[in-house]
Simulated scan of single mutants.
Amino acid sequence: MDGKVIGYARVSSTGQDYDTQVERLKAAGATKVFNERQSGLDRERPELAKCLDYVREGDTLVVTKLDRLARSAGHLHEIVEGLNAKGVGFRVLDDASLDTTTRTGKLVFGILASIAEFETALRKERQLEGIARAKAEGRTGGRPAMVTSDVKAEIAKLNAGGMSIRKVAAQVGFSKATVQKILAAATAGKT
């Protein structure tokens, strides 16, 4: 089944121009090119989503450089797995080894997928080690509580002295909503 070549071009900033990418993709046989001006770090890239939805079995998705498509080895693996599931090939013009329409390209992607899984496992292991170390040192997650018992006492004292909630909030440096919650909790006997 002969499919179409579909291109995807992306630039990060308004000062950049993707015309060169589009020309190269068309020269490589792309009959349709999706392009967008958006950071590669953005999770939501509407044109990429449209492109991945558009491609059909037998098509080949082509990009000029790998960083135009994926943010990391894991993200690349996720995209290519989706393409493989649809029967869509993938090529990178600036790196001939990244071509899932060839045996060698499939091998390279298999290696990249293994590296991505390894990186994820290492990150998780380091995170768990850090959490265990913090617990051993008596630290728990999250930032330290800012509303201490001293602050609660000061809020109650100022309010009991007839100061408005707005003025109490300005005095202690918290929002009006925070002061209201503290006073409500004190009234309910939760202090």
Rank of each mutant, 00 (worst) to 15 (best):
V108Q: 01
G138M: 08
T101N: 02
A113D: 03
V63G: 03
R71W: 02
A85K: 14
T140M: 10
G87I: 04
T64K: 11
G82K: 01
D67N: 11
A132C: 09
K135Y: 00
S97P: 02
T64A: 04
E81F: 11
T120A: 14
G110L: 05
G82A: 04
D67A: 11
L112N: 01
E125R: 13
R133H: 14
S97V: 05
R139M: 06
G87N: 04
G141Y: 06
V80E: 08
A136C: 05
R133E: 15
R126Y: 00
K135L: 09
R123A: 10
A113T: 05
A136S: 09
T102D: 01
E137R: 13
E117R: 13
K86I: 06
K135D: 02
I131F: 00
G138R: 10
A85D: 14
L93P: 10
A136F: 08
R126P: 06
K135P: 01
E117W: 06
L122Q: 12
R71K: 08
S72F: 07
D95F: 13
F118D: 03
G110H: 03
T60N: 09
E125M: 11
V63F: 03
K124I: 09
E125Q: 14
K106Y: 05
T100I: 11
V108C: 02
R103P: 15
D99Y: 08
E81H: 14
R126N: 07
L98Y: 03
G110M: 05
K135M: 01
V63H: 08
L107Y: 11
V92E: 09
I115L: 13
A70L: 08
L76R: 07
F118A: 10
L112V: 04
G89Y: 04
L83M: 00
S72C: 10
R126F: 12
A70N: 03
T120R: 15
G105E: 04
D99A: 11
A134T: 05
L98R: 07
V62D: 06
L122A: 09
K65D: 02
K124L: 14
L66H: 03
A73L: 15
G105H: 00
A116C: 08
R103H: 12
G82I: 10
A70G: 03
S72V: 00
T64V: 14
L122S: 08
V88Q: 01
A132K: 13
L83G: 06
A73V: 12
